[in-house]
Computed example of a mutant assay.
Amino acid sequence: MNELSRRAVLRGIGAIGIGAGGLAMFPSVAAAATLTRVLVFSKTAGFRHDSIPAGIAAIRTLGSQNGFTVDATEDAAAFTTANLAQYQVVVWLSTTGDVLNAAQQTAFESYVNGGGGYVGVHAAADTEYDWAWYGGCCGAYFSSHPAQQQATVVVEDRTSDSTAHLPATWSRFDELYNYRTNPRPNVHVLMRLDESSYSGGTMGSDHPITWWHDVGSGRAWYTGLGHTIESYSDPLFTRMLLGGIRIAAKATTTTPPPTDIELARGRPVTVSSVESGTAHNGANAVDGNSGTRWSSAFADPQWISVDLGSTRQVRRVRLTWEAAYGRAYRVETSTNNSTWQQVYSTTTGDGGTDDITVSASARYVRVTGTQRATQWGYSLWELSVLGT
């Protein structure tokens, strides 16, 4: 069998009180003292969201409950160097279209690059398409969206001030944006959408929806959620938004997730079968040698499982297929080698390299093929498990 050309495919695979109106209160801590004033900007030159008034009211309430003043405007004349200097954060609340002139753009660039904070909410990504700096600050531009619907949000980083209160998976109703580019290479992703949980996603299994990153000496935080009026009375959402404002203001400690390491290399492997008359055993898939492989019997189903030795935080599973690849397969994890949780599945595998984003605490990782793409079995050059 000949090795297929590699086709990299991103797949994804303090006490909190609740105040009036379902808005999150945050305890007073020393770091929060730097957050004193926030500007909410909601000018629209395109579609106008009817949730903007609710968003402004929610942020005002967050301010009154957490010790910072909130000003709101739709007047782009507020974007001068002198005026912006009084704010730690500017929230772009579902802005759309071309909303600043050249001088105002320059003032905002200088503000953020000089240490100011940017928070983008929902349609902030549908704004200023001809201003490249802004696209980089936001992280990605809007591309499209399906009808509003229920979807599962996967919380990748639960150490962040804006996500620590959320469950590992968060089911919510919203308008779910697709983006022109995947921002992951340039930002710290906090949450992603599980496209298998709804219809109309176009980014595959790596679909970031909330993130933060540094911009010059400043910091930006963005979420694609927040289309609906109801979002702004949802305590989970408003607490997330409060955390985002604090992150952008650098009023809270924010650390990127730890660097992933290879967890499967040289670990014990078990398999359902080995191709008859060959030395293509399971250990070949975790030996780090791209010239050796595991190959199964020529039948469905087949599986390969690796023991990581202890429970680890698994973030990615990378499968490097030989020519005999899986058309349909699933990835499962377990802490005890008996109870398994499915973290990814596909029926449209196309070989090459599948780089699957997951979020699981696991000692064992198993890949089960249920439909072969060829007359042969399942054959992997490498099964790589990345995490901490």
Rank of each mutant, 00 (worst) to 15 (best):
Y232V: 03
D206E: 15
S338T: 08
H207W: 13
A283D: 04
S276V: 13
Q88W: 02
E322P: 01
I18F: 06
G266V: 05
E128I: 01
G19E: 07
D50Y: 11
G116K: 12
V38R: 10
G139L: 01
A33W: 01
T159I: 04
W294R: 13
R327H: 09
A24Q: 04
Y232Q: 04
E128M: 14
V317C: 01
R48M: 05
A102Y: 06
I229C: 09
T348K: 09
F298T: 10
P146A: 06
L383D: 11
E230M: 09
S379A: 15
P235N: 04
Q104T: 12
S42Q: 07
A285P: 01
R239D: 06
V343C: 00
E332A: 11
A132Q: 10
T253Y: 01
L166K: 08
F108Q: 04
V91F: 06
V271W: 03
G326R: 07
V40F: 02
S310L: 10
A132C: 03
L236N: 14
D50A: 14
D75E: 02
A45Q: 14
T333A: 06
R312D: 03
S110H: 09
A323E: 14
A283N: 04
S160F: 05
H213W: 13
T368V: 15
V385H: 07
A299R: 14
A77W: 03
A107G: 08
F47E: 08
V90N: 09
D307K: 01
G139S: 02
N66D: 08
A20I: 07
V343P: 00
A103K: 05
M203K: 12
W131H: 08
T339F: 08
T163C: 05
L62S: 09
F237C: 05
